[in-house]
Design a protein around this nucleic acid. Structure first.
Lengths: 203, 203
DNA sequence: ACCTGAACACCGTTCAAGT
DNA sequence: ACCTGAACACCGTTCAAGT
């Protein structure tokens, strides 16, 4: 099949790129269904490629996830930059935390992953998470100096809270067999309740 | 080896009981290290029995966990009963939620497990969790009628919050590689902060 | 009655062999 | 250069064979 020189090369490269796209598409579907620890063999199967191809395109499960989540994180950084120029510092922070919580619901297991990656230098998601944290940190500092948010909180605290809420809502979104008294709360209600606790109290 | 009649039987029964104890001991160690989804083969190996014996003594992973967590849940119910007779209704609820959060930190993954079991009729932990929720529900109702807790909250909300905090602290308790700005908050601080949000606000 | 371990159908990950 | 699938070392779970 070897066509001479560049033609063969670029055909192979195009094919490789298509495989990468298919793998990402497939991974998005499988992770959405089975969570971030879903079977990578499943991902490869559904993409119609061999398992070896997956490992050739992505050095690890986290590399796949990093590729899938990169856009989310970029949009959070963009939103943060935009919110910096708003008057309401506290409202800005809360809006950003809401957006973060939403993004973390991409796949089951993402919140956990993000919290761990924040603290693990070796994670493929480490830098992505750290950048995102920097964006949030700026918003937090502004909200704190405006007096709208307790001054003893750190951005690490808030990311953990956000992750916790995202985990809760992720589970609440699943099919429930008995739905009487344990019906899941509205998506944003839990976050609202918890964020209430972040304001300074004047008793 | 077959000794005649009852003697052989009771020896076998005693042996079986000892195996069960060893398995539980081993499971406690392995789950503490690797979380609730740890290898059951590992559990059997460390207990010095065949994998078949584990499955003979416990019909499922959840059955092992139910056996390990039964005491915790019982003590929460006892604590609840005791707190019912205290004057400070809100303080009682908060103390109980603190205790619950602590118990959920038994092994990594327990909070998630409890939240799921609460909603899954088929789980071996379902009844255990439901009873515990009933205990908390009574404390919540009392705190709400005393005016100390927002009236729109349900016990399901609070258990989810507790699970979320327990998850956070469980992760915070792990060895961190970089510990600068992401240092984990003190054990109870997150819970305190969040519980602040549960009080009615008077602006 | 109880215990064991082989057996089955899956994983994640690597790497020789093919094109 | 890229792709494939066998190979290895693991799982969870079941069940025939042993005592």
């Amino acid at each position: 099949m070897t066509e001479s020189g560049d033609v063969g090369w670029s055909a192979a490269r195009a094919h490789a790129a298509r495989n990468r796209d298919r793998l990402l598409q497939s991974a998005a579907e499988v992770f959405a269904r089975d969570g971030v620890n879903a079977s990578l063999r499943d991902v490869a199967r559904r993409a119609g490629v061999g398992i070896g191809t997956l490992y050739r395109r992505f050095e690890s499960r986290e590399a796949v996830l990093a590729a899938l989540l990169a856009d989310s994180f970029a949009s959070l950084n963009a939103l943060g930059a935009e919110l910096e120029s708003r008057d309401d510092a506290t409202g800005s922070l809360i809006e950003w935390l809401s957006a973060l919580t939403d993004e973390m619901r991409a796949f089951p297991g993402v919140p956990d992953l993000v919290v761990r990656a924040m603290v693990d230098d070796d994670s493929r998601l480490h830098e992505l998470c750290r950048n995102m944290a920097r964006t949030g940190g700026a918003l937090l500092a502004r909200a704190q100096s405006s007096g709208g948010i307790r001054s003893d909180l750190t951005i690490a605290d808030l990311l953990r809270v956000s992750a916790a809420i995202a985990t809760i809502e992720e589970q609440g979104a699943e099919r429930r067999k008995s739905d009487e008294s344990t019906a899941s709360p509205t998506a944003s209600r839990m976050l609202d309740i918890v964020l209430d606790g972040l304001r300074p109290r004047s008793p």
